[in-house]
């Protein structure tokens, strides 16, 4: 399959959102990509089943920043979710009109990562604009408060890169192609992570990845990683990427691993289908 053929098949980007305010920022990034790829924008608002259950169980919500307790009933939680879903729908519509894209919107009640995994089966490109799971830390708190900070991340810092996880030629070529385009659109560097064994086999994987990348565009770094879960998660955390592209059909894309990856990378995930 050539890159051009793959591009024709990518007809739709599904953006998975939840109640977190940061979802809308992820939606905007995805819309930019959809505009560049000229594919449909599909919004999927996930009503997190865990949150709904939690609201019917003992315990309180602890508000970060103040430490105060807040009890939320199921009805309240559902109402909140409906409001957020309506806001997400309006934003999908606005962005689709702004970029002249066709669009759909759906609300589904499910567990986040399982729903993400499921969506990846039926969509060409899935963007997770979901909030990273706990542990929370400074970077995970609401962005509005961080923006007010005098130096949220230091006065001088390099732009956050686009990350791509290359796990073999079968789905990897498409992942790298899209990641490189996203980097070009947003004028960000691209960092390709290649988990591979040591030795010649590992070098071969790196060479394959390099061959998939075009010469032009933003700076690209290809990093070979030890083939362990821990090494991958550490590398993702250290890279501080803005987007993470990965193969939707790879071993890494199980529901459980998706949660770990989201937690470590703390950025939007883009699951690329092999169709």
């Amino acid at each position: 399959m050539t890159a051009t053929e793959a591009s024709v098949k990518q007809r739709r980007i599904l953006v998975a959102m939840d109640s977190n305010a940061e979802s809308l920022a992820g939606l905007r990034r995805a819309a930019t990509l959809a505009s560049e790829l000229r594919i449909e924008l599909a919004g999927l608002f996930l009503e997190d089943i865990n949150l709904l259950r939690m609201s019917e169980l003992p315990g309180h919500e602890i508000i970060l920043g103040s430490g105060s307790r807040k009890s939320t009933s199921r009805a309240e939680m559902e109402q909140q979710m409906r409001h957020r879903a309506a806001a997400a729908r309006r934003e999908v519509e606005r962005l689709a009109q702004a970029f002249s894209l066709s669009w759909t919107f759906e609300v589904r009640r499910a567990g986040l990562d399982s729903a993400l995994r499921e969506a990846a089966r039926s969509n060409e490109l899935v963007c997770s604009a979901l909030a990273p799971p706990p542990l929370p830390h400074a970077a995970a708190r609401p962005r509005t408060s961080r923006r007010r900070a005098v130096y949220p991340h230091g006065p001088v810092r390099a732009p956050r890169p686009v990350l791509a996880l290359y796990e073999g030629a079968e789905g990897g070529a498409r992942v790298l192609e899209l990641a490189q385009r996203a980097a070009q659109i947003n004028h960000l560097p691209l960092e390709v992570l290649v988990p591979a064994r040591a030795g010649a086999a590992g070098q071969k994987a790196v060479d394959e990845a390099n061959r998939c990348l075009s010469e032009a565009g933003e700076p690209v770094t290809v990093r070979r990683l030890p083939q362990s879960e821990k090494a991958l998660l550490n590398a993702l955390a250290a890279a501080r990427g803005q987007l993470l592209f990965l193969d939707a059909a790879s071993q890494a894309a199980t529901a459980e691993r998706l949660a770990s990856l989201r937690s470590a990378a703390k950025c939007d995930l883009l699951l690329v289908s092999r169709h």
Binding site: N20, N50, R53, M54, E56, L57, G59, E61, I62, P133
Partner: peptide, 26 residues
């Protein structure tokens, strides 16, 4: 117990595997 991220903060709930336990089960 599961530590769940909520729109405003964090909450604790009884867990079943990686998910929050359904209320009827609880």
């Amino acid at each position: 117990l599961a530590l769940v991220r909520t729109p405003m903060g964090l909450a604790l709930a009884p867990a079943r595997g990686n998910e929050v336990m359904p209320p009827d089960e609880f």
